[in-house]
Design a protein around this nucleic acid. Sequence first.
DNA 1: TTCTTGCTGTTAATCAATTCACAATTGCTT
DNA 2: AAGCAATTGTGAATTGATTAACAGCAAGAA
Lengths: 206, 206
Amino acid sequence: MIKDLPPNTVERLSLYRRRLLNYPNEDKLYIHSHKLAHLLKINPAHIRRDLMLIGFTGDVHKGYNIQNLIDKIGKAIDCKHTQKVAFIGIGDLGRAVADHFNQKETKLKIAATFRTSKPPKTQFQEVTCYHISDMKKVLIKENIELVVLAVPRSYAKAISGEIIRTKVKGILNFTSVHLNVPDRIFVEDYDVIAKLEKLSFFTNTA
Amino acid sequence: MIKDLPPNTVERLSLYRRRLLNYPNEDKLYIHSHKLAHLLKINPAHIRRDLMLIGFTGDVHKGYNIQNLIDKIGKAIDCKHTQKVAFIGIGDLGRAVADHFNQKETKLKIAATFRTSKPPKTQFQEVTCYHISDMKKVLIKENIELVVLAVPRSYAKAISGEIIRTKVKGILNFTSVHLNVPDRIFVEDYDVIAKLEKLSFFTNTA
DNA sequence: TTCTTGCTGTTAATCAATTCACAATTGCTT
DNA sequence: AAGCAATTGTGAATTGATTAACAGCAAGAA
């Protein structure tokens, strides 16, 4: 794991890897920066720069060895142990994401989902779905470190109050409520409403 | 509606307004930049600069008039007519967002939701939930211009292929698939997997 | 062998976003 | 009336992200 990678680079490395994992294996062992850039619709220089930052070097003619690159990205951004993730109050989106995390190459594992309503305890694939009232207990017992939080506003405060009493270290926060958590917890906010209003703005001016 | 606002400013203006709408009305008619900044955990200069960009000016002692500011933000970022939004394949998250759009102050209206599975046609609040197979028809009939797309990978291509044959102008894309759409459609990607891997990275180094 | 081609690695340039810092203003206090 | 205190509006500085540009290299063609 490399220190001091820019946040956006970390995100892109994740994208590179995922794209490469799905890359038709055919006989292709290598890929050029501009080819990968084209697949991801980004600038080739960006890729070369990102790979430079993690010290991965390609062949001047053949390009980048795909398997080695996948491995190197893992070394750069994955943590050593597997981290468990929980989805709190997010139905279909979790489902849309889940398949990837059942692949071999990932250090993240979806360990539980929670709902504020309905099913008190059901299975979804191999992931158990609990009622929200069991959240704290399960987060602790399962040693979950990352959560995706997408519950209605009215729940947000109480739930985040419980989360800080667990071992959770990171929250992807889709509630439009600003969470009051200690510094040891890393929060990434995403405000759907603001994004929609931005979308509205740029579809009417641009 | 103002041209040439930076994207991030547009997003923040949306956040400012929403925060102000929920601001305890008490007797407070005015708010200072640092007070609002504190509520949103951002830098006060940021707020002053954003408001400068939309030509809103405050009182050197009282601060910003809340109602006027709300109105001005509307003039700056809202489009004139109401725009309709659809949620495609996103259950709870849509629910978590929906309440806001039933407020008076918004130009966006959730007009439909679609599911890839289960309920062929049910109601959620006043919003009808259709089966995905009716999507194109409904998008056209309802004149929907914005969609939030969060279906499993395997559906993404086919669905985006249908979307481009409607009047949709903007897509908030939560599928990790790069959509191939013409330039007239504004796409904002959000890759949950990449965000989670970033979260994992920064909870293990920082 | 020598030339051409096309790629990587990397520095430099550009562009965008954020924050600093302070002049100007004006109510309030004395 | 004069000085203090607090706030806005904004130019300048800083930080960060992206893109351009090209030297250096090596395979393959001539």
